[in-house]
C-alpha cells in the first residue's frame, strides 16, 4: 500500500536537506557547479536577486526549457521559484516534476493580497518569513518548509539575522505561554491557532527552517547555523563572487562545521572576491524585497 504527497512526505524532503546548502542557479551549467560543490539542492530562477535589483523589470518563473535542462543535468533535488500568489506557475512547476516550489518575494508578486493555497499542489512548498506570525500563516496555507526572507541580492546578512532572531523569540514566547494564552497570541500574530498548538507541542516550528537572504561568506552561513537554522540558501552570494566553485564548496563545508572556528578559518582562505554588498539603509523602501507578501 502506498500513499503519495502526504504532508509528512512533503515535510520529509525538507528534513533530508537539513545541514545542507541550497544554491540559486539560472542555468544547467551553474547547477552542475553547485552539485559538484556539494549543494544539497539547487534553486532555479530566471535571474539572481542581485541582477534583478540592477536590471529591474518583472521577474518571473524560469523558462520551461531551462528548468527541464537543469532537471536532466543534476541528480540532487531541483527547486524552482514561483511568484507570490501565482498558482498557475505553481501548477506548471508541479506538472514539470520540480521537487520543491519556492513561492518567493524575490520574483515580482502576482497577487497583492493572497499567497497560493499550497495544500492543493502535490509538490512541497518553501516560503519566506520575517517573523513568527508570517511563518505560521504560510504553514497554515500548506508550506512544508520555512526560510527567513533576509534581504536578497544585497550580500548583507543583517536582515536574515533580524528575521531569525524574531522567529526564535516568537517560538520561545509560544512555548513558554500556557494554553489559556495561545488564542490571544494567535490574535496578536494573526496566525492560525492550530499552528501555534503544534509549536507549543513540538517545542519548535513544525517544519524545517532555513536561513536565506544576504548570505555571502562561509562565516555568514555558520552565523545563521549558530543562530539555530536547519540549513542555508545562498542566492547571489555564489555566482556573483570572484570564484563561484571554491566559494560554493567553502560555504558547504562551513555549514556542516558551523561550530568549528578552525575549520571556518581553513575554508575561508583564498576564496577571491566576495560579492559586492549593499547597505540596507541605502535601499529605498520600494526596493526592499522582504516587504513583499504579508
Amino acid at each position: 500500500m502506498k500513499v503519495e504527497s502526504t504532508f509528512k512526505i512533503k515535510k520529509g524532503l525538507a528534513e533530508m536537506l537539513k545541514g545542507g546548502v541550497i544554491m540559486d542557479v539560472v542555468n544547467a551549467e551553474q547547477a552542475l557547479i553547485a552539485e559538484k560543490s556539494g549543494a544539497a539542492a539547487v534553486m532555479a530562477l530566471e535571474r539572481v536577486p542581485a541582477d534583478i535589483r540592477v536590471e529591474g523589470g518583472v521577474a518571473r518563473m524560469s523558462s520551461v526549457e531551462t528548468l527541464e535542462e537543469i532537471m536532466s543535468t543534476v541528480s540532487v533535488p531541483v527547486m524552482a521559484k514561483s511568484r507570490i500568489g501565482h498558482f498557475v506557475e505553481a501548477q506548471m512547476l508541479e506538472e514539470l516534476g520540480i521537487d520543491f516550489i519556492d513561492e518567493s518575494e524575490v520574483l515580482t508578486p502576482a497577487d497583492d493580497k493572497n499567497h497560493i493555497n499550497k495544500h492543493d499542489i502535490k509538490t512541497p512548498f518553501v516560503n519566506g518569513a520575517t517573523n513568527i506570525g508570517e511563518a505560521c500563516r504560510r504553514i497554515g496555507e500548506g508550506a512544508a518548509m520555512i526560510r527567513t526572507k533576509g534581504e536578497a541580492g544585497t550580500g548583507n546578512v543583517i536582515e536574515a539575522v533580524k528575521h531569525m532572531r524574531s522567529m526564535t523569540e516568537g517560538i520561545n514566547r509560544i512555548i513558554s505561554s500556557d494554553k489559556n494564552q495561545l488564542m490571544s497570541l494567535a490574535k496578536e500574530y494573526s496566525a492560525p491557532f492550530s499552528v501555534l498548538e503544534d509549536i507549543k507541542k513540538e517545542g519548535k516550528l513544525p517544519v524545517v527552517n532555513f536561513a536565506a537572504g544576504g548570505i555571502a561568506t562561509p562565516a555568514d552561513a555558520a552565523l545563521m547555523m549558530q543562530l539555530g537554522c536547519d540549513g542555508v540558501f545562498v542566492g547571489s552570494g555564489i555566482f556573483k563572487s570572484g570564484d563561484p566553485a571554491d566559494r560554493a564548496e567553502a560555504i558547504v563545508i562551513a555549514t556542516t562545521n558551523f561550530d568549528n572556528p578552525s575549520k571556518l578559518v581553513e575554508v575561508s582562505k583564498n576564496l577571491g572576491e566576495a560579492m559586492v554588498g549593499l547597505n540596507i539603509d541605502d535601499l529605498d523602501e520600494s526596493e526592499k524585497l522582504a516587504k513583499r507578501g504579508w
Binding site: M1, K8, I9, G12, L13, M71, P77
Partner: peptide
Amino acid sequence: GRQNESFEGLVKFNNNSQMYCFIR
C-alpha cells in the same frame, strides 16, 4: 522518481507492518 512520486508505504519490517516514508 522525483519528489511528486515520494510516498508513505506499508512495510513489513521486524515482523510487523508499519507505514514508513520513501523520499526520492
